[in-house]
Nucleic acid binder design. Structure first.
Length: 890
RNA sequence: UGGCACGUAGCUCAGUGGCAGAGCGCCGCCUUGACACGGCGGAGGUCGGCGGUUCGAAACCGCCCGUGCCAACCA
C-alpha cells in the first residue's frame, strides 16, 4: 500500500464495550440533543420547508401508559423522517390540564372547594391538607386561586411526563410547550369564542338539556354514551277525564308519573284513536293531561300508548316542544325530587289533597328511591284513576334497554332545564363533511367514523360547563333595574382584554362596584367544555389572532396524530373550529393509531386495571426496543404489548451495534466500489431506499421498518457481510482495489442502513453514527443527516447482472447446507467441492465466485454444468471438509 | 339492529390476482476472527366456512360463522 493513499477513517473495536450500554447512551444522547438544539424549530425558514405536527396534549392528571408511548412513537417516526428530508419541524408538546380529573385531585389534595363568587386573593398559598384540616369543612377559594393550585399540582405531573417522553426519545421541541390552562391557551379559547360570537355561531338558551346529576353539569352529545341497563316495564292504568273508563300505559320510569304532562299513541292505532283530543287522568295524582297522536309512538312497544313526562328522555322534550305541553320539572339539579304543590296552577289535580299526600313521600328522594316508592303506591287501589283496582297492572316486566350516561358518570342522565351556551353546528353538517373529505385519513377507513358521527349529529355543541378549573366563558350580562340579567345582550370581553375571568374582571364601561347591582352587570360563572380549548391545538401552536405571520407559517398543520376513540370529539371539534373561524381544514393528514391491548387482547385502560407504564419497559428492554415494537404496528391497528416483540427490537439494536463495530473497524484505502458483488449489493440497497421513501411519504412506517430490518438481516449481516469479510481483510498489494471496494461498500451499506433505521431506533443509530460518520460527513447527529437518496449512490456503476447477488447467496447457502448436513461448523475449511448448476447459473456465478469460495473457505473446487437444474439452483457434490482443528491459532 | 375492521403456521403478524411468507417458539447441528444478546439447517398451514367471477383467488364479489370497535335501540 502506498503511503500517499488516503485511508478510511476506522475505529479500534477494542475501545468499544463488549455490549451496548443502552441506559447510559440514552441519557448521553438526550442531553446532547437538547444541548445541540437538534429538534429546534426554526421560525425563519419558509412554509414549504416546514412540517407541522398538531401534537395531542396528554391529560396530565394520572400517568402515561404504554398506549401513549405507542401512538407518540408513530408520530416521532414520521417526524424524524421528515427532519432528515430537510424539513423544518414544528413539533410541540402540550399538556391538557383542564377538566374534571385535575379538579378532583386538587380538591382532595388541598381540601378546598372553588366558589367563583369569591374574590381573587393575591399571594395565596396552601400546604397539602393535613388529616386535621380534612376534618373541617373544605376551604372555599376563588376560581383564580383554584386554578393556580391546579397549576401547581399539574406542574409536577408535567415534569414526570416530560421525563417519560425524553426517555422515549421523542424529538419534540420543548421550547414550544403549552398547557391548555395557561394564559396563552385561555386567551386563544376566549378569542375563539369572541370570533364565533361576532360571526353569530354561538347562542345561549334556557331549555331542557342533558344533565349529569352527580357532576351537576350540562353535557354535549359527544360526552354521552349508551349503556345497556336492566330495567322494567310498568303497566299503569290511566283514567279518561270525565269518563268511566281507562287504558294502560307502559313505562320504565314510573317515578316520573307525577311529572306526566301528556299521553300519546300512534295516529293509526285503532285501540286508542277515540282517545285523541280527550284528557287522561293520572292515577294517584289525578292530573288531567292531553291525549294526542304521534307518528313516533310505536304500537308494537309496551301497550302502544305511553305517558309523556318532564322529562324521561329526549323524545319527551320533542313532544313538549311540538305539543306545547306543560313543564313539570320534578328532578332537581342534584337528581333529587323537588317539592311541588298539587292543586297549584302548574300542577292541577282532581284530588289535590291526596296527590300532595302521595307526593310528600317523594320529596328529597333520588330517582332510584322514588321508583321504589311509586312501585308500592301503585299497588294501592285507592290511587286508581278509574276505581277499578290497583293502578299497577300485573308485575313489572324486566327489560334490557339502552340508557344514556355521561361517559365519566355513574347515574343515568336527566333532562333538566338550564341556561347553556351552544355553538351552532347542525346547520353546518354539509360543510363539516366536505372538510372531512379534504383531509387525508390514515388509514383511510377511519374517515367513515368521522362521517358517521357528523351525519348522526342531533344537537348543537353545548360548550358551557358548570365547573371551575377550565377556561371561563368571557361574558358578562347587563342587569336591568330589577337586577335581572339580559341574557340576549351579553357583553363579550374585548380582544385586547383577554384572557379574562368575568367573575373577577370587569367589563369595559363598568366599575367593579356595579357587579351584581341593579343596572350593573353580572359575570358568567361557567367555564368552557374542555374540548372548546383542545379543539384549538393547531391555532394554539400557530398563535392565531395573535401573530399573523406565525399563523401563516404553521396553519394548517401537516399531521394530526390521535387515537380513534376521540374522532367524534377531538378531531370533530377541531375540524369544526377551523371551519367556523377561517373556512379551513386544520390539518392535511390525520394519523390514527390503534389501541394497545394487554397480552390477553383486552384494551389497556385505567379502568380495566391492566395498564403498563413505559419506564420499567424502557429500563428492561431499552427505548429503541420499545419503539421498535410500536413502530412495527401499522396505523389504525390494535396491537398487544408483547415482550416477545420488545426482545426482537433489542436483538436488532444489538446486531446493529455489532455490525457497526465490525464494518467500521475495517481498514483500507479509500477506493471506489467496483467489484460485481459490491455493486449488486449496492443496487439492492438503492431499491430499498426508494421503497422506504415511498412508504414513509405514505405514512406506512411499519412497512419501511419491516423492509429495512429484513434487508439488514437477510441481505447485509447474514449474507453480504459474510461474503466479503475475507476480501475486506485481505492484505497484500494486489488486493488493494478489491479490498477497498469491499470496505467502501460495507461502509456505505452501514451508513445508509443506519439512516434507514434512525427514525425507529434513534439511540443505537446515533451511537454507531457517532463513531465515524458524524465527523466524516460533517453531521454530528444522524437525525439531522440527509435521508439517503441518489446522491449517496452517485458514481457507482450498476452490476453487470441483476442476479449476481442472489446467485452468490444461493451458491453460498448450498455450501452451508452441505456443511450442516455434514454437521460441521460454517467456518470449517472446505478441502474440495463440486458446484453443480445450469450453465447459465454458472455463468452468472463466475464474477462473484471468488467471494463465495472465500466465504466457504474453499481451497479446491470444480464446476459441473447441469442443464436440468433450474436457474439459480445450486447443488454441492463431493464436498470434503477439513478435520476439526485442535485449537484455533489465535 | 346497522356500519367499519379483523379472521393466514403453536403464538404475534406481513402478504390487493400468478409456486403460501417473516419473527418468536419447536427439532437437529455449529463456539467461525462483529455478534452465543450469535450462526447454519429443518419440521410445521385445506389462508374461518360455503358459493361465485377468473386460465388462475389467501387476495375480487355474494352469503354465512366468529371476534373487536363505533353508532343506534330509551315509552
Amino acid at each position: 500500500m502506498s503511503s500517499d493513499n488516503q485511508r478510511v477513517r476506522s475505529i479500534d473495536p477494542e475501545t468499544l464495550p463488549k455490549h451496548f450500554a443502552a441506559i447510559e447512551a440514552e441519557k448521553r444522547w438526550d442531553d446532547r440533543w437538547e444541548a445541540w438544539g437538534t429538534y429546534r424549530y426554526d421560525p425563519t425558514r419558509p412554509r414549504d420547508e416546514t412540517f407541522v405536527v398538531d401534537t395531542p396534549p396528554p391529560t396530565v392528571s394520572g400517568s402515561l401508559h404504554i398506549g401513549h408511548l405507542f401512538s407518540y412513537s408513530h408520530t416521532d417516526t414520521v417526524v424524524r423522517f421528515q427532519r432528515m428530508r430537510g424539513r423544518n419541524i414544528f413539533y410541540p408538546m402540550g399538556w391538557d390540564d383542564n377538566g374534571v380529573p385535575t379538579e378532583r385531585r386538587v380538591q382532595n389534595y388541598f381540601h378546598v372547594r372553588c366558589d367563583p363568587r369569591i374574590a381573587y386573593e393575591p399571594n395565596f398559598a396552601l400546604e397539602p391538607a393535613t388529616a386535621k384540616i380534612r376534618k373541617q369543612r373544605p376551604r372555599e377559594i376563588s376560581r383564580q386561586n383554584f386554578i393556580e393550585l391546579c397549576h401547581g399540582v399539574t406542574e409536577e405531573d408535567e415534569q414526570a411526563f416530560m421525563e417519560v417522553w425524553r426517555r422515549t426519545g421523542l424529538s419534540v421541541d420543548w421550547t414550544q410547550t403549552y398547557a391548555t390552562i395557561d394564559d396563552h391557551c385561555r386567551r386563544l379559547a376566549q378569542l375563539s369564542f369572541r370570533d364565533l360570537f361576532e360571526k353569530g355561531h354561538v347562542y345561549n338558551v334556557d331549555a331542557p338539556f342533558m344533565w349529569d346529576v352527580d357532576f351537576q353539569m350540562a353535557l354535549s352529545q359527544a360526552d354521552v354514551e349508551d349503556r345497556l341497563q336492566t330495567g322494567a316495564f310498568y303497566d299503569i292504568e290511566f283514567g279518561v277525564d270525565g269518563q268511566d273508563r281507562g287504558f294502560a300505559i307502559s313505562t320504565t320510569r314510573p317515578e316520573l308519573l307525577p311529572a306526566c304532562v301528556g299521553v300519546t299513541a300512534h295516529p293509526d292505532d285503532d285501540r286508542y284513536k277515540n282517545l285523541f283530543g280527550k284528557h287522561a287522568l293520572t292515577p294517584l295524582f289525578r292530573v288531567p293531561v292531553p291525549i294526542f297522536p304521534s307518528e313516533v309512538a310505536d304500537p308494537e312497544k309496551g301497550t302502544g300508548i305511553l305517558m309523556v313526562c318532564t322529562f324521561g328522555d329526549s323524545t319527551d322534550v320533542d313532544w313538549w316542544r311540538q305539543e306545547g305541553l306543560a313543564l313539570r320539572q320534578l328532578i332537581g339539579h342534584d337528581g333529587r325530587l323537588v317539592s311541588v304543590e298539587f292543586g297549584s296552577e302548574n300542577f292541577p289535580s282532581r284530588a289535590a289533597e291526596s296527590a300532595n299526600r302521595y307526593y310528600s313521600e317523594f320529596v328529597g328522594k333520588n330517582v332510584a328511591q322514588a321508583r321504589k316508592v311509586i312501585a308500592e303506591l301503585l299497588r294501592d287501589p285507592a290511587g286508581s284513576a278509574t276505581g277499578k283496582g290497583a293502578p299497577l297492572l300485573g308485575e313489572p316486566r324486566p327489560v334490557e334497554h339502552a340508557v344514556k350516561f355521561y361517559e365519566k358518570g355513574d347515574r343515568p342522565l336527566e333532562f333538566v332545564q338550564t341556561r347553556q351556551w351552544f355553538v351552532r353546528l347542525l346547520d353546518k353538517k354539509q360543510a363539516l363533511l366536505e372538510k372531512g373529505e379534504q383531509i387525508r385519513w390514515h388509514p383511510d377507513f377511519m374517515k367513515v367514523r368521522y362521517r358517521d358521527w357528523t351525519e348522526g349529529l342531533k344537537l348543537d355543541w353545548c360548550i358551557s360547563r358548570q365547573r371551575y378549573f377550565g377556561v371561563p366563558i368571557p361574558v358578562w350580562y347587563p342587569l336591568d333595574d330589577d337586577g335581572n340579567p339580559d341574557y340576549a345582550n351579553p357583553i363579550v370581553g374585548e380582544r385586547e382584554q383577554l384572557p379574562v375571568d368575568p367573575m373577577s374582571d370587569v367589563p369595559h364601561g363598568y366599575t367593579a362596584e356595579r357587579r351584581d347591582q341593579p343596572g350593573g352587570f353580572s359575570g358568567e360563572p361557567d367555564i368552557f367544555d374542555t374540548w372548546f380549548t383542545s379543539s384549538l391545538t393547531p391555532q394554539i401552536g400557530s398563535h392565531w389572532e395573535i401573530d399573523d405571520a406565525r399563523h401563516a407559517q404553521l396553519f394548517p398543520a401537516d399531521i394530526r396524530p390521535q387515537s380513534h376513540e376521540i374522532i367524534r370529539t377531538w378531531a370533530f371539534y377541531t375540524i369544526a373550529k377551523a371551519l367556523l373561524h377561517e373556512d379551513q381544514i386544520p390539518w392535511k393528514n390525520v394519523l390514527i393509531s390503534g389501541w394497545v391491548l394487554d397480552p390477553d387482547r383486552k384494551k389497556m385502560s385505567k379502568s380495566a386495571g391492566n395498564v403498563q407504564t413505559p419506564l420499567p419497559l424502557i429500563d428492561q428492554f431499552t427505548a429503541d426496543a420499545v419503539r421498535y415494537w410500536a413502530s412495527s404496528a401499522r396505523l389504525g391497528t390494535d396491537t398487544a404489548a408483547d415482550p416477545k416483540i420488545f426482545k426482537i427490537g433489542k436483538r436488532l439494536s444489538t446486531k446493529l451495534f455489532n455490525a457497526g463495530k465490525f464494518v467500521l473497524s475495517q481498514t483500507a484505502d479509500v477506493h471506489p466500489i467496483v467489484n460485481e458483488l459490491d455493486r449488486s449489493f449496492i443496487a439492492r440497497l438503492r431499491d430499498l431506499v426508494e421503497r422506504n421513501t415511498r412508504c414513509f411519504e405514505d405514512f406506512q412506517h411499519a412497512v419501511a421498518l419491516q423492509e429495512t430490518e429484513s434487508f439488514f438481516w437477510t441481505h447485509f449481516t447474514d449474507t453480504y457481510l459474510e461474503l466479503v469479510k475475507h476480501r475486506a481483510r485481505a492484505e497484500g498489494a494486489g488486493n488493494a482495489s478489491s479490498r477497498g471496494s469491499a470496505v467502501a461498500a460495507l461502509r456505505l451499506g452501514l451508513d445508509v442502513l443506519l439512516r434507514q433505521f434512525a427514525p425507529f431506533l434513534p439511540y443505537i443509530s446515533e451511537e454507531v453514527w457517532s463513531w465515524v460518520y458524524a465527523e466524516e460527513r460533517g453531521e454530528r447527529s444522524i437525525h439531522r443527516a440527509p435521508w439517503p437518496g441518489s446522491e449517496d449512490f452517485r458514481g457507482i456503476e450498476p452490476p453487470s447482472s441483476d442476479a449476481s447477488f442472489d446467485v452468490a447467496v444461493a451458491c453460498w447457502a448450498a455450501i452451508n447446507k452441505s456443511k450442516a448436513d455434514a454437521e460441521v461448523s460454517m467456518g470449517r475449511e472446505t478441502l474440495r467441492l463440486t458446484i453443480a448448476a445450469s450453465p447459465k447459473s454458472l455463468a452468472l456465478l463466475e464474477p462473484v465466485l471468488s467471494d463465495v469460495l472465500a466465504a466457504a473457505r474453499c481451497e479446491n473446487h470444480a464446476l459441473a454444468g447441469r442443464p436440468e437444474l433450474e436457474e439459480g439452483v445450486f447443488e454441492i457434490l463431493d464436498a470434503e471438509f477439513a478435520p476439526k482443528a485442535e485449537k484455533a491459532p489465535r
